[in-house]
């Protein structure tokens, strides 16, 4: 089991290297950069621009730039001083003149809050719904849930977000976007939490709708599949009550394929979250990358791409580990 995790981690490292290169490549190939827009401003002297170019090493050949950037991310001694180490140095944001990581770190936290809240809510709703739909197959609940699932799955995230914003502004029940209110700092810890939840509600709702639609169908299909298995017949033949057959034997086995989904959830949600973040002004990684692209803030985009990719890979890794943990067939092979 440890070996399994170790192998996975090693693979992850290689993947990270690959994606760092791709991220770098993407921004290198993008025409124009922030300094070009600056150059159009007559108030800024060419000398200043030349100085910035040199400071950021933009005159160097691309492979050198890549290595410098990569080295910055990895733990490295600062200015040859072996007593002072730095890491996660993704460079400086052109537009805000602060280290990229200081932009990315809170953004990452915010996106994670959104994603994790969505995951928790979705699973709590989707699993019971899927189980019930499967157990009462073709019953009214099942038919209704299939119908709702199609609708939930087809609604575009950004459209639903706009729809909810419209309702929010009409009913004044929820804030219209953003993550925290204006007077956040003056609130008590409890107040802060409530304020956060208040702002979290609509974005999570948007993401949950699509997510539940998908998960519930998967759960239902998985359980139906398992209920057809021979060992369920054996369990019944043993004289076990139907309830035990379903909840101890069938559900346990049906949740197995869902566990892998659980890890991949993070990857799916990151994309969905991007749309929601932009429409609802939630300050997460998605919003950051969008603004950085508009402003051609090179290092921010690269860093953001890497960080979001890392999150996805970590999620996948989690899925692999979880699956190995619960399925003895993989564990003891």
């Amino acid at each position: 089991m440890i070996r399994y995790i170790g192998e996975r981690l090693l693979l992850m490292l290689f993947l990270l290297l690959g994606i760092s290169f791709i991220s770098f490549l993407i921004m290198q190939l993008a025409p124009g950069n922030y300094l070009d827009t600056l150059a159009m401003n007559p108030q800024i002297s060419p000398a200043y621009i030349a100085h910035m170019k040199e400071k950021f090493g933009l005159n160097l050949p691309w492979y050198v730039q890549y290595f410098r950037w990569l080295l910055g991310i990895l733990p490295h001694p600062v200015n040859g001083n072996w007593h002072h180490w730095d890491y996660f140095d993704f460079g400086i944001s052109f537009s805000q003149q602060i280290p990229v990581f200081s932009i990315l770190k809170p953004a990452m936290m915010n996106t994670l809050i959104l994603a994790l809240a969505t995951i928790v809510v979705s699973w709590f709703i989707a699993v019971p719904m899927g189980v019930y739909a499967a157990v009462k197959q073709n019953g009214p609940f099942d038919q209704a849930s299939i119908f709702l699932a199609y609708i939930g799955f087809a609604i575009p995230d950004f459209f639903l977000a706009m729809l909810l914003l419209f309702l929010a502004s009409r009913t004044h029940l929820f804030p219209i976007g953003g993550m925290i209110g204006r007077d956040y700092e003056y609130l008590s810890p409890w107040g802060k939490l409530i304020d956060l939840f208040h702002h979290l509600f609509l974005p999570v709702l948007v993401l949950t709708v699509g997510n539940v639609a998908y998960l519930m169908r998967q759960m239902r299909a998985s359980l139906l599949d398992v209920l057809r298995a021979e060992y369920i017949q054996t369990a019944r033949a043993k004289g076990l009550r139907e309830r035990i057959v379903i909840f101890r034997h069938a559900l346990r086995n049906a949740l197995n394929p869902m566990i892998t989904l659980f890890g991949f959830e993070l990857g799916f949600l990151l994309s969905g979250a991007l749309a929601v973040e932009i429409v609802m002004s939630w300050p997460g990684l998605g919003r950051v990358i969008y603004e950085a692209i508009i402003q051609k803030d090179l290092y921010v985009v690269m860093g953001d791409l890497m960080v979001s990719s890392v999150l996805l890979i970590v999620g996948n890794l989690l899925a692999d580990i979880l699956l190995a943990w619960v399925d003895p067939r993989i564990r003891y092979d």
């Binding site: 298995a229 021979e230 060992y231 017949q233 054996t234 369990a235 033949a237 043993k238 004289g239 076990l240 034997h249 346990r252 086995n253 197995n256 619960v326 399925d327 003895p328 067939r329």
Partner: peptide, 18 residues
């Protein structure tokens, strides 16, 4: 399973793998 028991054809699929 108590007074009347039954065993089935394929023991691989008749036993719960988990």
């Amino acid at each position: 399973g108590n007074r009347i028991s039954m065993i089935f054809q394929d023991p691989m699929t008749s036993l719960n793998p988990l």
